[in-house]
């Protein structure tokens, strides 16, 4: 049970949040121009990283805001939390 530092509300229990998978996958601006392969890449293919992962979380039972987290998926340690639309503070 993580403690997640919501950038809008502060530190809260994991149970208030919902995970939203890998971050920084941008929805194509012109989907119709994409091949089936390229569309599948956006739709389904994931890095599913073991180690430092950039991911999306939603404070669903709180402010309802989406934001990003950098987390080590091998031990679940949260490194940084940052707002949606901002550049990741670490590489």
């Amino acid at each position: 049970m993580f403690l997640i530092n919501c950038p809008f509300c502060g530190e809260r229990e994991q149970s208030e949040f919902k995970a939203g998978g890998e971050a920084h996958i941008v929805r194509p601006k012109q989907p119709t121009e994409l091949s089936d392969d390229e569309w599948a890449e956006y739709l389904f293919m994931r890095k599913n990283i073991k180690g430092i992962q950039f991911e999306r979380w939603n404070h669903v039972h709180g402010c309802r805001k989406w934001f990003n987290i950098v987390r080590d998926t091998s031990n679940d340690e949260i490194k940084v939390v940052y707002k949606m639309g901002t550049k990741p503070p670490i590489k």
Binding site: V26, R64, W66
Partner: peptide, 8 residues
């Protein structure tokens, strides 16, 4: 809907 609105 919130997801699309806030993130896309």
């Amino acid at each position: 809907l919130e997801d699309y609105l806030q993130t896309e």
